[in-house]
Amino acid sequence: MLELKNITKIFNPDTANEKVALDNLSLTLEDGDFVTVIGGNGAGKSTMLNAVAGTFPVDAGSIIIDGEDITKLPEYKRAKFIGRVFQDPMTGTAADMWIEENMALAMRRGKSRGFSWAINDKDRRIYRQMLSRLDLGLEDRLFHKVGLLSGGQRQAITLLMASMNHPKLLLLDEHTAALDPKTAAKVLTITKEIVEEEKLTTIMITHNMKDAIAYGNRLIMMNAGKIILDIKGEEKAKLTVEDLLNAFAKAGSDGAANDRMLLN
């Protein structure tokens, strides 16, 4: 499904701030995998996701989705295959545009846009239906600017948008980290529902070890641009926070078991 082959990304090469963000990283995802990713700050989690999404070109390696090499494809063309939700609720939606306009934009992701009218009544019915399943009362607010909504509401809408048209890959970059615990839990529940219903191949970065264990069928731990732990299926089901902490300690990097992770 998704194949990362020997990906290397170095930020600020040949300067004092040189940082190897991804170090010859390889990863293969099966169809329908729901992978949670944990690791300390600077471990390369977001860099990996952004490399897949095409935010920047990688220095070496190749990225393959369903047999198609997308390494050289610009970000906007990769969007055809990929739905994304970002950490900052502001990032995933256009604040000055209405809810229905945001959804209409996402509805054409990976398709030609053309000059037909962007939204008709049939579209509206579909959007209402999708929004009503969030159970946030947003189905009656199609004409509200997204910027007026709370962070949780925006993330929920971004999730809906990202999952439209059945993307081959859903990338969630700590999409609940900026939310209060109660809202975060709600957004995570919606995430789980959407991923399971649509059977989306998903990568979810999280700082919360419990969530990393509770969600998905596979867990990856990263450190210094490498994958240091990769646990699937049965074995993942038996995983405890203790196990993860031990793994972090073994990795030995001070960045790995930072305070934020321990607090979780």
Binding site: A53, P74, E75, Y76, K77, A79, K80, I82, R84, F86, M90, T91, G92, T93, A94, A95, D96, M97, E101, L105, A106, R108, R109, G110, K111, M161, A162
Partner: peptide, 16 residues
């Protein structure tokens, strides 16, 4: 309009 409103989101939605 989306491009002017939120470039990052626009690219994520496949907009050049």
């Amino acid at each position: 309009r989306a491009t002017g409103c939120n470039e990052k989101m626009s690219r994520a939605q496949g907009i050049n």
